[in-house]
Design a binder for these strands. Structure first.
Lengths: 138, 138
DNA sequence: TTGAGAAATGAGAATCATTTTCACATTATA
DNA sequence: TATAATGTGAAAATGATTCTCATTTCTCAA
């Protein structure tokens, strides 16, 4: 029977504290070290995998590796999405009701159940778009 | 001044031939080897990067690495999306008009321009969902 | 044509996130 | 307490991607 270790608690607590902010395994390691409760990377990956499989957190894949986020509610993510800017690398988290009809359509017409907590759009934020345009006009 | 090499042509031709089917760099290498025109992996990555920056192809990030797809038209992707099944790993490509209002909303309200060719939803296809349910009920 | 210089190529080394291994520590339960 | 199960972390292994550099291929002006 599994039991709870202080590493597990520290990892989950850290993710909760940073809610809405995607963290990489390395980010987590750094955070935990700062908090005075360092945890080995192997353990961090193991725990992240476990937390993900139980639905406590969700994983987002990007070019530079994976990021993890705490899920507040069971139904969290129903209309939530992430935007990743290709310019500055930032990941922004927001809610949007426009996703609902799309998900329903995919479910009914294409028999595909979207994992709503892992939706990630790639593109450009306003700042980076402006920078690109300036660049192009030179 | 850049010139065209047979490796470049072979890579692009292969991507065109496999349209709608995302290929990894390794897939491409295997294809090209079979075609009798083997190309080094370093070159494949270099060319994929170039083709992506010119907009000829687009890149999709997954847990297992990146995949690349040929873009038919400049405006391709306006309503196209990719579904990646977490169960079987398949990537399905389809068109869907439900994306349009969402993109417009993100553009106007959140000042975020989505790169429409890189939209990827993660979830479960019908087959894998059925399998999961069978599993859970045991 | 020729040859200097610009680009491209590919084998292998380097990198970096992630996973695995394994000896050891911790906890549960008999 | 003894013992089996599980968790931990350092170090090694893995695998995708990138870098290095010697070599090849092209371009273009003389």
């Amino acid at each position: 029977m599994p039991y709870t270790t202080k590493q597990q608690q520290a990892i989950l607590a850290c993710l909760e504290r940073k809610q809405g902010q995607p963290l990489s395994a390395a980010d987590l390691a750094a955070e935990l070290r700062q908090d005075g409760s360092p945890v080995g990377l192997a353990t961090i990956y193991r725990q992240l995998e476990r937390l993900e499989s139980t639905g406590c957190i969700h994983k987002i894949n990007t070019e530079q590796g994976s990021y993890f986020q705490y899920c507040t509610h069971a139904e969290d993510g129903a209309g939530c999405l992430l935007l990743k800017c290709e310019g500055c690398g930032r990941i922004v988290h927001l809610d949007c009701s426009y996703l609902q009809p799309l998900y329903e359509h995919l479910e009914q017409e294409h028999h595909f159940t979207v994992d709503r907590r892992r939706t990630l759009f790639t593109g450009l934020c306003a700042d980076c778009r402006a920078r690109e345009e300036r660049h192009a006009s030179e």
